[in-house]
Structures are given as C-alpha cells and as structure tokens.
Amino acid sequence: MVEKILVQGLNCWFGESHSVKSLTLEVKENEILGIIGPANSGKTTFLRTINRLNDLNERFRMKGSIKIDSEDISTLDPEVLRKRCGMVFALPLSLPMSVYDNVAYGPKRHGNNDKKGLDEIVEKALKAASLWHEVKDRLNASALKLSGGQQQRLCMARTLAVEPEIILFDEPCSGLDPISTAKVEETMLELKKKYTIVLVTNNVKQASRVSDRTAFFLMGELIEIDVTQNIFVSPKDKRTEDYVTGRFG
C-alpha cells in the first residue's frame, strides 16, 4: 500500500511542555491507524497537528515535517489542508442548526449553493455515515435533538460532505454508549474503503476491533507501531504489553 501521511522527526510544544517527541511514522492509504496511549501521551496533539488546528493556539510550536501525498503541510493553505483532512471530535460537535444545515454547512461555505446538488451531497454523506434512515424524515429538525450517537455520526457526515481524503478521529466514542459505539465503529470500517483514517482512542479494545495497525504513545513518545494483532498479542515493548493488558493507563 501507498503511504498517505509521512511524519518525520515531529516535535511539538505547548509553551514549555514538550508534548510530542521525535515522532516518525507513516499512515498508509485506506488503512485505519489506531493510536492508543494514556492521557497526556500526545495522541490528540499529534492529530491536531496534522490538520494544523493547533496553529490557532499561540503557545504551540512544532519542528519536523508532516507530508500528505509528499506535500509538506506547512506549505499548504490551512483551509485546503483541513478540507482534505476531516476531523471528528471527542464530543459530538453538532452546530446549533438543523440536521440538513449541519451537513450542508461545509459545501455551502466552500461555495456550493446549488440546492439540488446540496440535497444530493447531504443524502450521500448521511448514507455513508449510516444515519440517513434514522433522520431522513427530520432533516429540518435541530441537530441538537438527536441522540449522542446520532450526533456523532452526523458529525462524520458533515466531515464527509466536504469530500476529504483523510479522516482524523479524536476519541470519537468517548461519550457514547456501547450500542452507539458499535454503530460508529461499523461506519468507520465502511469508510476506510474510500478514506485513510487515523483513530485516536482511549479505548484499547476499540483499537483492537477496528484498526489495521496500532501505535502506542507514552508521554509524547511513540513506543511501538505495528500491525494491530502484533501489538495486542506479541508486543515487543514491555510498556506496550502493560498498557494493552490493562496494567496501567
């Protein structure tokens, strides 16, 4: 498989705190790379560095490079970059508008104002996020009236509507019950046929269920990265083993 994201010697700081240390890894096209690790291990920081959302924080500094399709992200326009790397957040961040408007929001802001075209995009995105059947009769209802799981899939649909290549998931199921979680995971597996996915998760089991390869982060360092099965069955590093078997974290 082709590498989609290539990270080389990445270091990130917030003020004085060094949150990602000399990170080098690659994400292959159409894979799900799971990133696990305890709190403050730099997983989320890494994720938000990829789409340059950290740039908005004045205290953020970085060194090293991240390349997407061999293009350094620092040379890309952040808006173009973010359109290519969609992001789904830990808490379902539905905007306070209707279901339809949430999904149509991105395309509209990117200049698509054709009503028929938007209808199609919304339907397609909602279908891809396996939400269409649940909401097709209440597209004009407020998105905030949906359940947590539905809202999270709505956020996925909203991300898909701007046609990204990569989707960054930041602990997408942390607020969800097991049934909603299963739905979201199912959707993710469906999505990887078309998209490259980086999944940051606190839930070790979730990584074992959906990711193709898994990386283990600890205190800002990449301890180990391998095919998921190897990480869970025969980890090379003692710390990885301790973490995945639940001895700490």
Binding site: R82, Y105, V162
Partner: peptide, 15 residues
C-alpha cells in the same frame, strides 16, 4: 468547539 468544528471543515476564519 463550534469554531473548531467549522475550521476543521476547511472553512476560513472569517467565514
């Protein structure tokens, strides 16, 4: 978070 949701879609700051 509303701002992040919008920015993460590649929408510009002013938009």
């Amino acid at each position: 978070s509303f701002r992040e949701a919008s920015l993460s879609l590649g929408v510009s700051r002013w938009q």
